[in-house]
Computed example of a mutant assay.
Amino acid sequence: MAVQYSPGLEDKEAGPATRSDSLISNADIARLEKDGDQALKFITDRVEGEAIVINAETNRRLLRKIDLHIMPLMCIIYGLNFLDKTTLSYASIMGLQTDLNLVGSDYQWLSSIFYFGYLAWEFPANRLLQLLPLAKFSAFNVIMWGIVLTLFSVTSNWSGAMAIRFFLGLFESAVTPGFALFTTQWYTRKEQGFRTSIWYCFNGFAQIFGGLVAYGIAHGAETHGFSVAPWKIIFIFTGTLTIVVGITFLVIMPDSPLSTHWLTEHERVLVLERVRINQQGIGNKKWKMYQFKEALLDPMVWAFAAFALLSDIPNGGITNFFSLLLKSFGYTSQESLLYGTPAGAVEIVALLASGYLGDRLGQRIGEGALLFQP
């Protein structure tokens, strides 16, 4: 058997929209069978000696269909991912520190322990994302972090709050790497930058939404009085919302294009052909030590690690202390909650603009370095 493919897409990486000369022969299939991913087996089982051509109209139709079904859920989940991290910042000026008897550096440790949990589970979570069904494992983590967040409302002391924050970081550690995998499964490299900026910019929407919700709860508590502490309502609301969205994600989100109910079998072949220009598969469960060693020796990997470290050090502090910082300038608690929302709007605009220009100009690293400057 010989399988012939044609990308049929105008792309600098894929070449012009013409029939491809690339051919997967029986020898190639035998050689790749051991390490090949699910997409290779799916294609070779269904296409025999047939060239796959995707014209511009078909490509646009598939892209719209993928965007419609994949992006909304990813955007909402990622927004909740940020919202749930900022609940501590909101709660810090809504009575949490008094009710939990936090003194000295207790709040600082409460902020930091989240990232200890995140670090402890990051590498195991990445391996499990590879081994287990991607959408189901991601949904499990979303539901669990929603449950953990809700349980924060019943904590009565610092040690209980520390345990909750640790497990919250643990379950949230799978979100960003999982979403990176979803994006590479469904989109070409030329499309990935802007799509990533779309779901990532929902951090900004979450900051706006969370600030308004926290302000409304604080204002309602002051005006009408609640039997439950306002900061507890924040955790109950955001945690319950996360659980509901996580269950929806579990039911709707496919693990890969191969298990998608809203695509016909022919459309699945076309979706796989679309992303073939990425020169990667859509899911391989085998650990390859040579690739791990190659990554450790790649200077770009360490450059990106340094970039992430240097940018996240101030980001973590601002996320957890933003409301307290605003209040220190003389604003009331309610004003501090409300005045934090414009920062979310700035983030949305900056991320969308950089994502679009990065894909358009092909200068993602240059733009990232420019935005990283203080």
Rank of each mutant, 00 (worst) to 15 (best):
I76G: 07
I77W: 07
Y78D: 11
Y78N: 12
G79I: 06
G79Q: 04
L80S: 07
L80I: 15
L80G: 05
F82W: 07
L83R: 00
L83A: 08
K85Q: 13
T86H: 13
T87H: 02
T87N: 13
T87V: 15
L88D: 01
L88M: 11
L88R: 03
S89M: 06
S89H: 01
Y90C: 03
A91N: 01
A91F: 00
A91G: 01
S92V: 01
I93L: 11
I93S: 00
M94E: 08
M94A: 05
M94W: 01
G95D: 02
G95A: 10
T98S: 13
T98C: 06
L100M: 07
L100H: 02
N101D: 11
N101F: 13
N101E: 11
N101R: 15
L102V: 03
L102S: 07
L102T: 09
L102Q: 09
L102F: 04
V103A: 13
G104N: 06
S105Y: 08
W109Q: 01
W109Y: 15
W109F: 15
L110A: 06
L110I: 03
L110N: 10
S111P: 00
S111Q: 02
S112K: 07
S112W: 07
F114A: 06
F114G: 05
F116S: 14
F116R: 12
F116G: 14
G117I: 01
G117P: 03
Y118W: 04
Y118E: 06
Y118V: 10
L119N: 09
E122P: 10
F123P: 06
F123W: 15
P124Y: 00
P124Q: 05
A125S: 15
A125E: 12
A125H: 09
N126G: 10
R127I: 15
R127E: 11
R127D: 04
R127A: 13
R127G: 09
L128A: 14
L129M: 12
L131F: 11
L131K: 12
L132N: 03
L134R: 12
L134A: 07
L134S: 08
A135E: 09
A135P: 15
K136S: 12
K136A: 07
F137W: 14
F137M: 14
S138D: 11
S138G: 11
N141H: 09
N141V: 09
N141M: 13
V142A: 09
I143H: 09
M144R: 01
M144T: 09
M144K: 00
W145S: 01
W145M: 02
G146T: 06
I147F: 02
I147A: 08
I147E: 05
L149M: 14
L149E: 06
